[in-house]
């Protein structure tokens, strides 16, 4: 049981960004991807989620053996995939509570309605965990939220939807240390043998709070190095040039 990415090639406007990326995240594990700017980190998350700007030219992505590249964006989500956005979008006029409710509703069979009382109880409990004010249920999705509030809101959605595989795209960007701690607490509470995480980040700092099982280095559209959590520290210390030099030598 895993999220499996095999020899993935993807382009945007005919420019190849991912050049044969292979990666497997078994359930129960947290994998981190680190890489310099332009290495393809955000492309990877968007391709897996199904963004239309990216064209997959080769390779496969499966979750628990099921090909998701053939699925629509929404089907991928319902199949158990979750992308925490680096820049969550604002949706004016749609309240946060209705948004999350619609997402949950989409997972139910036709004719079945969400129990509103149970839903709010669950929502409030999870907001308390994330130290989010109740007022965020009535406010429009992400509109006027600070950077930290937006990221908490992503984690709230993740907690409510209980996905099988979570991809976190630079969740640490724009977060101060307090927000980072709260967000990490939420993620850590969700770690379980039934769930896999792919944490994409530019900085090692996040990995002090969400400690990964495996660290991968993404460079020029491929995974060029994998190791245990100490690899992140080594990268932080030596910088990405170290990887480039090593590659050049090889």
């Amino acid at each position: 049981m895993s999220l499996k990415i095999d020899n993935l090639h993807a382009s945007v406007e005919d420019i190849e960004i991912l050049k044969g990326l292979t990666l497997e995240i078994p359930k129960g594990e947290v994998h981190a991807i680190m890489g310099p700017n332009g290495s393809g980190k955000s492309t990877l998350s968007k391709v897996i989620a199904g963004h239309e700007d990216y064209e997959v030219t080769e390779g496969s992505v499966t979750i628990d053996g099921e090909d998701i590249l053939e699925m629509e964006i929404d089907e991928r989500s319902r199949a158990g995939l979750f992308l925490a956005f680096q820049y969550p979008h604002e949706v004016p006029g749609v309240s946060n509570a209705n948004f999350i409710r619609a997402a949950l509703q989409s997972r139910l069979p036709d004719g079945e309605e969400i129990d509103a009382v149970a839903y709010y109880k669950d929502l409030y409990a999870k907001m308390d965990e994330l130290e989010m004010d109740r007022k965020f249920t009535g406010r429009s999705v992400n509109e006027g939220f600070s950077g930290g509030e937006k990221k908490r809101n992503e984690i709230l959605q993740m907690m409510m939807l209980e996905p099988k595989y979570c991809i976190m795209d630079e969740t640490d960007s724009g977060l101060d240390i307090d927000a980072l701690r709260v967000v990490a607490k939420g993620v850590n509470a969700m770690r379980s043998p039934d769930r896999g995480f792919l944490v994409i980040t530019h900085y090692q700092r996040l990995l002090d709070y969400i400690v990964p099982d495996v660290v991968h280095v993404l460079y020029d559209g491929k995974i060029v190095k994998s190791g245990e959590k100490d690899l992140a520290l080594e990268l932080e210390e030596k910088g990405y040039d170290w990887v480039k030099t090593e590659l050049a030598a090889a």
Partner: peptide, 25 residues
């Protein structure tokens, strides 16, 4: 915006409607 809603499992048609309704709301 449509991508964001769909990435949460909401089908395209429903996503469009929610966004449009929100626009007027």
């Amino acid at each position: 915006e449509i991508f964001y809603l769909m990435a949460r499992g909401i089908p395209a048609e429903r996503a469009r409607r929610m966004i449009s309704l929100g626009f007027l709301n």
